[in-house]
């Protein structure tokens, strides 16, 4: 293996220089501008922390879901908290034939349920023809299993989107990209909906960047 070949390998980069990052445009110019590689990474975990319900976390990734489904890749939703509403997805450009939902058996409340969810997440991330796996994890998930998911996402070349509550911001995360979403102060009633995105972590130099999007 020559030095050049070595430098080409993912996971190897020199200070001050970004490795070539395969990305998919987010569909929002303002967001593309602040993300390394100009879009969502095609492999690895993206952690999206939301302060509250209904502020548009799913709409933020909808253009990417639409694009991936048109490429013929699967979108796997692992145990979503509500029913992904088919008419809205269809209107958003998502090819429904490519949507796959993983329902876990009824939760009995015992501690094992997190394990089940993490297991299913890992399967989805390792699944080669899955472009995007959508996951909803609570604040109680420690860093170690997330690291496992990150490795699975890299092995399966899958974008894993983890939605978590804003309370997780203090926890360290192995994700490639970490965003915090909020509603800009004073714009609660704005139409169209305004969303503020802050990059908490990005492999690269852009962390701390913010942008405001109109969804």
């Amino acid at each position: 293996m020559t030095l050049q070949e070595l430098m080409q390998r993912a996971g190897m980069w020199r200070g001050g220089e970004l490795p070539p990052l395969a990305t998919r445009p987010t569909g929002f110019e303002g967001l593309d501008a602040i993300l390394p590689g100009g879009g969502w990474p095609r492999s690895g975990l993206i952690e999206i922390l939301t302060a509250s319900r209904g502020i548009g976390a799913l709409r933020l990734v909808l253009p990417m879901l639409a694009a991936a489904s048109r490429d013929g890749d699967w979108l796997v939703w692992v145990d979503p908290p509500h029913i992904p509403y088919a008419p809205a997805l269809d209107a958003g450009g998502v090819v429904l034939d490519r949507v796959l939902l993983v329902d876990l058996p009824a939760r009995s409340g015992a501690g094992g349920e997190d394990d089940e969810i993490l297991w299913a997440c890992e399967q989805a991330l390792r699944f080669a023809d899955c472009a995007v796996a959508l996951m909803w994890l609570g604040a109680a998930i420690p860093t170690l299993p997330l690291r496992r998911l990150q490795l699975a996402a890299e092995a399966g070349a899958t974008t894993g989107i983890v939605f978590r509550p804003a309370a997780c911001a203090a926890q360290s995360s192995p994700a490639v990209l970490r965003l915090a979403l909020g509603t800009p102060a004073g714009d609660e009633g704005a139409t169209p909906l305004a969303l503020e995105v802050e990059v908490l972590k990005a492999r690269g130099t852009h962390h701390g960047a913010r942008c405001r999007l109109d969804l």
């Binding site: 390792r126 699944f127 080669a128 092995a155 070349a157």
Partner: peptide, 14 residues
């Protein structure tokens, strides 16, 4: 059939 390389798997296995 899987289009990507690596330790990835096809639909059936998943």
């Amino acid at each position: 059939t899987p289009r990507r390389q690596g330790h990835a798997e096809g639909y059936a296995a998943f």
